[in-house]
Design a protein around this nucleic acid. Structure first.
Lengths: 238, 238
DNA sequence: CGTCTGGTTGATCTAGATCAACAGGAGTGG
DNA sequence: CCACTCCTGTTGATCTAGATCAACCAGACG
């Protein structure tokens, strides 16, 4: 974790439109500006640990963070991948509980920290923010259920393709030849943990996808031209 | 579904202390009394279907209801088992969305229905009820994540034992010989769907547990004396 | 008495976990 | 610049939990 912690100007944040604060009135934004702290994190850093008390919220400006959860026997799973615009820690904050999972940096990231005191104040004076978090919680639950179903019903192959499609929707690019491509933001082993598999199986599945000319991989670059063929293979559920 | 629909008196409901309405002031309870409708449902009945618009909440007075979810290819999974005191449908209601899963009666049940209009009114005048549902949503999310982890990491055997322990905590009884017992509220195939397995595998696993003298089964009666031995086998995570 | 549903058993098959080895960078330090 | 280690990813060989398919049994119910 680098030492440079800087004030962050939320009002002019270029990705504010992606965040939970997009509709916050100017007045409150100004207030946040006085407290938000930005910091650069490197791969492997933790924003917080499972079991920690919650001191505030983290808002991801760039990079990727994984929510990882350990069970009693020490096995861990990536529960969720969070990217630019996502706010982390709201559950422990609103639920007055400790963090139920760890937030680990999967790719160098810029993250802003907002202390719980200021959040509480905002929540009091501006109930629509609370409403917003309620909606967040409802959709997170919805998504979690979907992920649960996928884990139970889909093959590794389908899970991997689904993961690629999710990335594609968010970050898909088109190159000059009309070929879709994605730069995978995380390592193979993290992909494996995310889709509930192992690095070995992911590797093999990737190979198979290549021999079938469905997707090409080159390190962290994944490319494909026939989007439809992929969609066909997975019952595209979100 | 039986035809007799009756008014329900929430104020004097014997299980109100288990519900989300336990702390509701008298005044609001009186109001609910005028609208709550009680009805008897039989095995296989549906309270609502996945995709339905949400017209109100359902409060389970007795019996068991399963939240079942179908994916695009028609496979279904039991997402959650709901029992006396549980309120169903709050997610679609608060999220202004359609029901994301079906509520199916797994065991003859008495269920009360409260129209969304009256709920909305209560939510407006009594923000603590909204807060209560937010907390419900947070714990549901928490539980769902735990279930996701279990689905990925535990064997069928461990899942089954875990399921028994959950039932034990809620409904466990002790007979005259100091033997714990539970009456399984649902059918084998529903257990299978709940723990992400098949009826055949559940059956075999049950058999194995019996030969190891860990748990005895007789139809829907499960009994065991050595609780500790069971706890030992599963890293008891909730 | 047939029919149906829920549960149990048996035989088989396969996806994917596990264990083990190895290859290519990327640093690091002499 | 080479030697060393560390780390990620790939491949190979093996093994097993559990799904699947099929038959069958017992009780319920018309």
């Amino acid at each position: 974790m680098s030492d440079e912690t800087a004030r962050h100007n939320c009002t002019d944040c270029p990705i504010r439109h992606l965040t939970d604060w997009q509709n916050l009135p100017k007045k409150l934004l100004k207030k946040m500006d006085r407290y938000a702290l930005r910091r650069q994190y490197e791969l492997g850093d933790k924003l917080y640990h499972q079991g920690d008390k919650c001191h505030g919220l983290f808002c991801i400006r760039s990079g990727f963070v994984g929510l990882r959860r350990y069970d009693v026997s020490g096995r861990s799973s990536l529960i969720k991948l969070a990217g630019p615009g996502d706010t982390l820690g709201y559950r422990a904050l609103l639920g007055h509980s400790t963090h139920s999972n760890s937030a680990e940096i999967l790719k160098a990231s810029e993250v802003c920290y907002i202390d719980r005191a200021i959040i509480s104040e905002i929540l009091q004076n501006h109930p629509s923010v609370g409403e917003r978090f309620l909606q967040r919680c409802l959709t997170d639950l919805e998504r979690m259920e979907a992920a649960y179903l996928r884990a139970k019903n889909l093959t590794t192959r389908e899970q991997l393709l689904h993961f690629l499609m999710i990335l594609h929707e968010q970050f898909g690019q088109l190159d000059e030849n009309g070929c879709h491509y994605i730069v995978l933001p995380i390592a193979r082993k993290d992909i494996a943990e995310l889709i509930g598999s192992t690095p070995e199986s992911v590797s093999r599945t990737i190979k198979k996808l290549e021999t079938e000319h469905l997707v090409q991989f080159e390190g962290r670059l994944a490319s494909f031209e026939n989007l439809g063929a992929i969609i066909d293979q997975i019952g595209m559920i979100h």
